[in-house]
Design a protein around this nucleic acid. Structure first.
Lengths: 98, 98
DNA sequence: TAAACTAGTTTATTTTATAAACCAAATAAT
DNA sequence: ATTATTTGGTTTATAAAATAAACTAGTTTA
């Protein structure tokens, strides 16, 4: 009856990050940090997990002399996100099912 | 931008329980256990948390000689559930916002 | 009357989430 | 020029959650 909710996405911060990344070509650490209101430490940890899972790519570059970490959602990440959305919707509609 | 997700509902099992309870007048422990596929221990703990939060009422009765634990969602629980659904939807639509 | 089942609760363990502390380099102030 | 502050992070420690395993109390069945 209730589908498993992908534990990698069932996390407030990781879900927020994925929600942002799915709407843009790419986004850097600072942008994600500002938009999600996360602490840098927490964001760093959660980005690593999303990367580990193959849901995002993380590229470290330099912008002038300052480091820049750019993130981009992968096809696998898009699929996982869409699947998560579908799965959790079934919870919300549970009362309509047998 | 991203609303807080009620941590009491942002839990797979508690969300499943609330999804079930919102659709019925009441439900007992055994029913909830079967529908959610939870272990009894886990369900017991999570029901206690929902009760603590005032999201459900739990009544212990007897059915013949056997104990029976009946759960019922409260108005506060209904409100919290609807609010959670609304909040998480904003994540899914983040790409449409500024 | 012993074995197995029902309906749970309590406790212990593992996993997560999160913040706090830290680091290296860049820039600004004195 | 050297000290302070800021930027852009990572690592580590702690608190909270989820979960399973073990246990309890009573019932039914063999």
């Amino acid at each position: 009856m209730f589908e498993e909710l992908d534990p990698l996405l069932h996390s407030q911060l990781r879900l927020a990050v994925m929600s942002l990344l799915i709407g843009v070509e790419e986004a850097d650490f600072v942008f994600l940090k500002e938009r999600t209101n996360a602490t840098a430490g927490n964001l760093s940890v959660q980005l690593e997990k999303l990367k580990e899972a193959g849901y995002i790519n993380v590229e470290k570059t330099f912008q002038g002399k300052m480091p820049r970490t750019v993130c981009k959602i992968t096809p696998k990440g898009i699929e996982a996100f869409e699947n998560y959305v579908k799965s959790i919707q079934t919870y919300f509609n549970a009362k309509n099912l047998s």
